[in-house]
Amino acid sequence: MRTIKRYLGIFWLLLGLGVGYFNVIEFGLPKLQSGKQEDLVFGIINLFILTPIIVGGLVTFGYYVLSGEYDEKTK
């Protein structure tokens, strides 16, 4: 189980990158170019705040998982 949990780190890493791609290409840039005020605010928040948190967070989390940082303590 410990090995499976560790290798799932690759999945979290890829998920972070996938969400990043979707947020920038599908959701972020089109909003910035739509010309509507609401879309502009949402696009800015999405691209410059959400995406870095999700991508950076999930990629780092995936890396930590892969390197065994979350292996369960035994008490």
Binding site: Q37, E38, I45, I49
Partner: peptide, 18 residues
């Protein structure tokens, strides 16, 4: 007023998100 509308959206979004 488009600028006021922009501020309105910002006020609603910003406090919750950012």
């Amino acid at each position: 007023n488009p600028t006021a509308a922009f501020l309105s959206t910002l006020a609603t979004f910003a406090a919750g998100f950012v």
